[in-house]
Amino acid sequence: MLDPRLNRGWTEKIMKKVLVATINLYQKTLSPDHGWFSARHPGGFCKYQPSCSEYSKQAIEKKGVATGVAISIWRILRCNPWSQGGADQLK
């Protein structure tokens, strides 16, 4: 039997790779900030800097899947029409 802790590290690694690859794919295609239509938004589309997808990617890479996804969701919720926007680096 494999050590369950070892197993968890392995799943975490795969999950991280899959999520980051998905975000990369999104950024290369549909993303209004980085993708096909980015030329239309000279100052960037997202009101935050870095954009939500970039922020989420960094968060998942640095903080791990669970925490990273949680703070990504929180960021997207903050990226609403009533918020101020501006510089918002991952802490």
Binding site: P32, K47, I76, C79, N80, G85, G86
Partner: peptide, 11 residues
């Protein structure tokens, strides 16, 4: 001016 796009409506 400033970028006003927000990601939540897209989602």
């Amino acid at each position: 001016v400033s970028p006003f796009g927000s990601c939540l409506p897209l989602i």
